[in-house]
């Protein structure tokens, strides 16, 4: 069955009419792909799906989870993490407090990547860390901090690049064993983050589209990586404005490496290689 843009509009309207979820400004191609996948997985068609979400709240919540994409990795794009370590966090060294928001944190691998960095730099104690996502199931995974080893093992290579090496000074090398931060059990195929890393971050549900400011503290750093690609250009601009309001002066915004502020909000930020700062 071919789904037209009109079908999608009707579906999005149906969700809006029975909940406060609003997908009307999601990026159309990837959103349509998600719906096509859901129709295959549930062996249904769009009229039936639309009808069911109108009458079944629990089912609607499940579909919202299925719509969202949850891919994340430990230290994804090591260059970005090296930049955070040597270019951003070093500037925050003298502050009494450091506030960080992971917007769209998925299963939390990057939240723990940040915890590890902060700990290596001796900044963990004075950090406030919030991590949010629209999908409560991935937040449960994130809170547990337990992952399937074989899916994450290759990212330990990223750990080496970020934690053990200094790209800005090649003679430097830090011998940091994985066991400092992870319990790895190969027979059970699990990798768990150490309990002390789980004390800091506060995980909770937040929908970037509608929930607005719930923190009431300005942030030194906002990470929102490969989340905005699922929003259309107009909604992206709204979110860039939202982040602008949430950031401290000179605060840093870190996007995915193939995400960029293309619209009118670009003038409110300074691009510094792999990240942006608030003007």
């Amino acid at each position: 069955m071919i789904i037209t843009q009109d079908d999608i509009t009707l579906f999005v309207e149906a969700i809006k009419s029975v909940s406060d979820y609003d997908f009307s400004e999601y990026s159309i191609k990837s959103f349509t792909r998600r719906i096509e996948k859901i129709l295959v997985d549930y062996k249904t068609d769009l009229p039936l799906l639309t009808n069911r979400i109108r009458h079944d709240d629990k089912f609607l919540e499940q579909i919202v989870k299925d719509i969202t994409v949850n891919t994340t990795e430990l230290f994804r794009d090591p260059k970005v993490w090296q930049t955070i370590k040597y270019r951003i966090l070093t500037r925050l060294n003298d502050q009494d407090k450091i506030s960080i928001w992971h917007a769209g944190c998925s299963t939390g691998q990057e939240v723990y990547s940040m915890q590890i960095l902060l700990n290596e730099l001796g900044l963990l104690e004075k950090s406030d860390i919030f991590a949010t996502d629209i999908n409560v199931d991935v937040l449960d995974v994130a809170r547990k901090g337990e992952y399937i080893y074989r899916f994450n093992v290759e990212y330990l290579e990223n750990f080496d690049k970020v934690i053990k090496q200094n790209p800005f000074n090649e003679s430097e090398f830090f011998e940091v064993p994985y066991e400092k931060y992870f319990d790895i059990d190969k027979s059970k195929d699990t990798i768990k983050v150490k309990p002390f890393l789980k004390q800091k971050p506060t995980f909770f549900k937040h929908d970037l589209v509608k929930d607005g400011d719930i923190f009431h503290i300005p942030f030194d750093m906002i990470l929102c990586r490969n989340v905005l690609i699922y929003f259309n250009y107009e909604l992206q601009n709204k979110i860039f404005e939202l982040f602008y309001q949430y950031l401290k002066e000179e605060g840093s915004l870190i996007l995915g490496i193939h995400e960029s502020i293309l619209g009118p909000k670009a003038t409110k930020y300074t691009k510094k290689g792999l990240y942006y700062t608030k003007k």
Partner: peptide, 14 residues
């Protein structure tokens, strides 16, 4: 993805 409106969109779906 190529989107209507002459621009490119990216995604990290499975």
């Amino acid at each position: 993805y190529i989107e209507l409106g002459n621009y490119i969109a990216l995604s990290t779906e499975e």
